[in-house]
């Protein structure tokens, strides 16, 4: 072994030992707000919920004998007489991703102690989230009333299509709705100085943001596995 690689190995060993001793040091393992640590752990658990949903959906899609409906046709929206595939979903996805952007700005403003900007940015995020849920309501009612899709059957093919669709998007929609309420509560607390009185600590905005980004990320997977596949 050459001299350089020996010293590299040694440096790596020391580095790894440093990582291990930092992690197992006394008092705390991560130098973050405990609420943030708790949110990360919760999101890890929630990841397993959505993974189970998506794996369940893939399994029933494989076990279904009837043909799987073509998502590009089912989720098409007519514009000027022409059906455009996945138009509504594209808009919904765009809105949700945009809301992640405004959320990230809100976190930044929170740490800069800009109360007013934080409040408005969080409010915009919540409005974008609410409009996402509103469009989901539109999508659901279009499928139910116009196209006759039901959780137990649909005219286009495999009955598991409606079952998986309503279950997974419903569960995600509940996450978004819950997130909107969470965002509004925190936003108004920011506005009325609740956190200013509590040691001027705006970590909660970031914790709230973690949840919001997670919900967006889950949507990307639902979009990919349900709508694009």
């Amino acid at each position: 072994m050459s001299e350089t690689s020996v010293s590299e190995t040694q440096a790596l060993q020391e580095g790894l030992a440093g990582v291990a001793s930092d992690f197992s040091s006394d008092r705390q393992s991560f130098h973050v707000h405990w609420g943030k640590a708790m949110m990360w752990i919760f999101l890890l658990s929630d990841t397993f919920i959505f993974s189970s949903f998506l794996i369940g959906y893939m399994t029933v899609r494989m076990s279904a004998q009837d043909p799987w409906p073509l998502t590009s046709e089912v989720f098409a929206l007519s514009m000027g007489g022409e059906p455009i595939p996945l138009l509504l979903i594209a808009i919904m996805t765009f809105i949700l991703i945009t809301s992640s952007g405004t959320m990230a700005l809100a976190v930044n403003m929170g740490y800069a102690k800009e109360k007013k900007k934080t409040f408005y940015l969080m409010l915009i995020t919540a409005i974008l989230g609410a409009s996402f849920v509103g469009m989901q309501v539109f999508e659901w009612s279009k499928l139910i009333f116009d196209e006759g899709v039901r959780p137990w059957a649909n005219p286009m093919g495999a009955s598991q299509f409606g079952a998986a669709f309503f279950m997974i998007t419903g569960f995600h929609g509940m996450h978004v709705s819950g997130g909107v309420i969470y965002l509004l509560v925190v936003a108004f607390r920011v506005k009325n100085g609740f956190y200013e009185r509590r040691g001027n600590d705006y970590s909660i905005v970031e914790i709230c943001g973690l949840y919001w980004h997670f919900v967006d990320l889950v949507w990307v997977f639902i979009f990919a596995f349900f709508y694009l596949w």
Partner: peptide
């Protein structure tokens, strides 16, 4: 569970390494 895990990770006394 969130409480137990976060307590063990973040709220140990001085000198109490993992």
């Amino acid at each position: 569970g969130l409480n137990y895990v976060t307590t063990v990770l973040q709220y140990r006394c001085k000198g109490m390494t993992l």
